[in-house]
Design a protein around this nucleic acid. Sequence first.
DNA 1: TCAATAGTGTCTGTGAGACACTATACT
DNA 2: AGTATAGTGTCTCACAGACACTATTGA
Lengths: 247, 247
Amino acid sequence: MPYDPSAFPAFAVTVDLVVLTVRRDAFCALVVRRGEEPFRGWWALPGGFVRKDEDLVTAAARELAEETGLHAQDPGSPPAGAHLEQLATYGDPGRDPRMRVVSVAHLVLAPDLPAPTAGGDAGGARWMPVDQLLGASGAGAPSERLAFDHNRILGDGVERARSKLEYSSLAAAFCPPQFTVGELRRVYEAVWGVSLDPRNFHRKVTGTPGFLVPAGGTTTRQGGRPAQLFRAGEATLLNPPMLRPEV
Amino acid sequence: MPYDPSAFPAFAVTVDLVVLTVRRDAFCALVVRRGEEPFRGWWALPGGFVRKDEDLVTAAARELAEETGLHAQDPGSPPAGAHLEQLATYGDPGRDPRMRVVSVAHLVLAPDLPAPTAGGDAGGARWMPVDQLLGASGAGAPSERLAFDHNRILGDGVERARSKLEYSSLAAAFCPPQFTVGELRRVYEAVWGVSLDPRNFHRKVTGTPGFLVPAGGTTTRQGGRPAQLFRAGEATLLNPPMLRPEV
DNA sequence: TCAATAGTGTCTGTGAGACACTATACT
DNA sequence: AGTATAGTGTCTCACAGACACTATTGA
């Protein structure tokens, strides 16, 4: 078929963000209150339109900064900011009742933050446990429904995060720049919803080259014997992986 | 910001296809010859515009059928058609010199096909070894460059396929409905570019519940002792995974 | 006969899971 | 003291990799 630029249908393109963190041992997602129709008053994932001359990942980083003040990881500045990656794209006709919108969802893994002050347009923002939004793993129905198809997007993001902990060192993205082995273990436990043996976990993560680098000091912020502080190492892929229990 | 439907920038949305197969022990991708500017005469990935009321995956399946005659896997018809899944989305401004185009790339894994007759618009279509397009794993430069950012898309698709063979049973998507253990092993060897021990491979795949189901007969089409025929089982996830050698 | 592929058995090293035990803090 | 968490050592089982050996075809 000959190329005709005026013949293609026009789409709106947005980025939606699945921002995940671990707060007080709970695996939480960032949701914002919608201030307008449709779904006025509902919780939704943060997001917004991609601008005319803007890269997709740039748009995602901009929305993230606007809505949370978080800065995405600059390649090069090791312990600063959150992990950002593309998740998937959702473009069913009718997913937005107003018009044809294709949304490129992104996944953000962030350390625990003081308070998610909604930057500008959103009427409110808060962290909400993912179990409450998706239904606990035990098949319960979600107690909160999100606007549009955001439950599906969140579910995909949560599953991506859970599986990435297995074969990458991304769990450290949920931790502050310096953290203990116990704190890292609590991240895995919160995200996977399981209990892990502290002794085997310690042996595994400290024995994997490049995963953890000793940062020097110790801390007793978790109580008990002082624990060594680490920061994330250079390795991004875990080999062999750390598999989720309960096959 | 108040919602203003006329304020969003208009994008064109396309689907591009990374169609992979194994032909004569070579890992190959489907490329089509471009008949128009820009990149007239270059090889490119098949693809096209998403229609106004069309789902993304539907658009990908339609383009696949138009350009190859292949039908994507209908959930429910086990041994028919190819595996189709979303890969990633590419939307850099300037990736298409004519206008702002966001492309939702899809990955297709297909069994070996007789000949990729270009369906309609494309000036020609052929299977090309991925090493030739991406440069052999040994750092060689690609001997053929694709149009637009299709080298990058192809690279992402190839890497996705390689890693999916590890923890899923998708290798069977490269095989005919009935196949032998040796044929399945040659798929792994071609995709990963390695040699695998036939005895250990046999023990591994036949010992994984749900991966292979005996289909009854035997064949000698590979020469040597007759080999049992199998078809793909119900299992989609491999646990434990089949890891690539050469860490 | 040989060459090819299919399939089984056996050994060894690595690593995960279970768990006893010691170390060092706070109350 | 008791309780919390940190960290080490040890045992066992599962499994990947290496490879000897047998089975069954065609040339």
